[in-house]
Design a protein around this nucleic acid. Sequence first.
DNA 1: GATGTATATGGAATCGGTTCCACAAATGGA
DNA 2: TCCATTTGTGGAACCGATTCCATATACATC
Lengths: 330, 330
Amino acid sequence: MATIRDISEKAGVAKSTVSRYLNNGYVSEATRKKIEKTIEELEYVPNSYAQNLRLESNPTIGVIIPRFDSYSVTTTLQGIDKELKQQQYNILIENTDRSPEREIEYLKRLAKMKVSGIIFLATKLTEEHIHTIESIGVPVIVIGQEDRRLNCIVYKDYEAAFELAEYLTAYDFNKIAYLGVGEEDEAVGILRKKGFIDRFAKEQQKTLSVYYTDFSIEKSVQKTRELLNEIKPDLLICATDNIAIGAMKSIYEKKLRIPEDISLTGFGDYKISSYLTPALTTVHYDYNKAGHIAAKSIVRMKGQKFHPTITYVDYQIFPKNSIDKAKRKR
Amino acid sequence: MATIRDISEKAGVAKSTVSRYLNNGYVSEATRKKIEKTIEELEYVPNSYAQNLRLESNPTIGVIIPRFDSYSVTTTLQGIDKELKQQQYNILIENTDRSPEREIEYLKRLAKMKVSGIIFLATKLTEEHIHTIESIGVPVIVIGQEDRRLNCIVYKDYEAAFELAEYLTAYDFNKIAYLGVGEEDEAVGILRKKGFIDRFAKEQQKTLSVYYTDFSIEKSVQKTRELLNEIKPDLLICATDNIAIGAMKSIYEKKLRIPEDISLTGFGDYKISSYLTPALTTVHYDYNKAGHIAAKSIVRMKGQKFHPTITYVDYQIFPKNSIDKAKRKR
DNA sequence: GATGTATATGGAATCGGTTCCACAAATGGA
DNA sequence: TCCATTTGTGGAACCGATTCCATATACATC
């Protein structure tokens, strides 16, 4: 691999002259030609580690994600990427595969690389996470989980779940099942569930049975199958759209109709959801916008001192045909 | 930001001793303690540009993708990521947003960063692409497009389309419509289309009308709507599953039934496809495996000289309920 | 007590660029 | 013709780490 030194020797000029040529400095027409030719010949490519070494920080934002195969993650990434490209920033993505240890490791690694900021799509914030974020000396914005000591962009999970439950109480459901995820995920596992439970607790006559699955469609297919063998709900509330999609499959498998036999709701609005039959009643989160906001803020935070903030991203309830209109009260 | 020099001065030892401490060399218990304390105090984080500068190449693989919001892309990424993590390699993802200029730019940038290899999820290979790939001095594996001068992992698009068409000729369809994408994408835009056309050309009685859309669901909804206003096909072949999902929406909108009024096929097996109603007949590609293979090969290529190869990834036809069984011949 | 070896540490060179400074040559104006 | 300014170039320092080499102890062995 050719270096600037090789170029300078072969072309018979000084290193500094080559560097000047590369960075639009004073170079005479004659040397310009010589250098140009030599660079072509040796297939010279500058080494960016050497270049970056002199810079105190470089225009790169690190993004830590828990997985690639998730609509919310990729949509958020799109939003981040678009905004950062506009601001002439580079983006560096690290996938943790839902491993908390990797999250910590990547936070540190990105700091070593002197990125000017980190956007962290979190699933759970432990004390170790918080300590790491506070100590690495690089601004971090957390998306999706909340802690008052940090800079977070969060979805109003509790409120959204509460409001969707509110919407559902206008219908005459009696046997309600909730299919959620484990409490490892603070926002989805705890807050969403709590929102539903709290609202339905006000309706004494209604029972709400809670079941658990993970974020995959397959598992949801299986868990819904088990669930339907145990009970026969007239409303199945799913903690994510993916879970609802899996549930749909099992419901149809049992020759039940949606919404006539079972009404169904999702959460998160996975785009595909409105193309299902029937279209899924769900909560819409603007992941793209969250990414956009995060990117904008992280760029603005450059060099400034840290300032904990919580930004809430609004939600919207999308009523669709997966709820049985015939059950509407009054 | 503290450097190794600050540490050494504050602790009263030489730079080299600090470095040795950091890299598990000989250090006495006493100095170990001093250095440890100073590092803690100054919140020292090593600068990885300086570290990398000495290395000839670092264990990082660059991955260039056209977009984030695509099932095939994210699934391929999963496969790549998993294999690379196992091999202790880092991954560096660059999203081009389908811009050919950015593809070239990123190929060069990754070379500058001395990644040990690049995996390039291509949409079209121009001469400039090929020249760049050949000249950057870093091994590149192309996924999804083919050129005999390069190292490619490709899907058998033509063969798969041909075989799906073959399968469809066992049914009694008369008015067939094909909803494809533009020829900017070589594999999907040209090869898939040609596979269908060539096979159907053998069946004189059948007409095949060709229409175009892009890769988005929205556009497909709109284009299908227009298509259905013009003609009334009994079979609609879509170039991707996403397109088929959009088509479904418009077909239902027109109060037509699938498959009784229109049979439908997709291409690419987007996982979600089997959860639709009816489940979509489609071609299954193992994107994850392609990513896996690519990662394995790129790691193996390290340091070796370039050797053009084409690796074909097999496909599988998944017959599902979106084809009208009543129309089966004999 | 002399020699040899293990243990610790410092100094200096190095990686591949960028940039400051000095200086030489060319140009221009008086 | 002389001095001032512009233009072009080379040398050297520097960015922050690693690593080789030299050296200085401490301890063991004969």
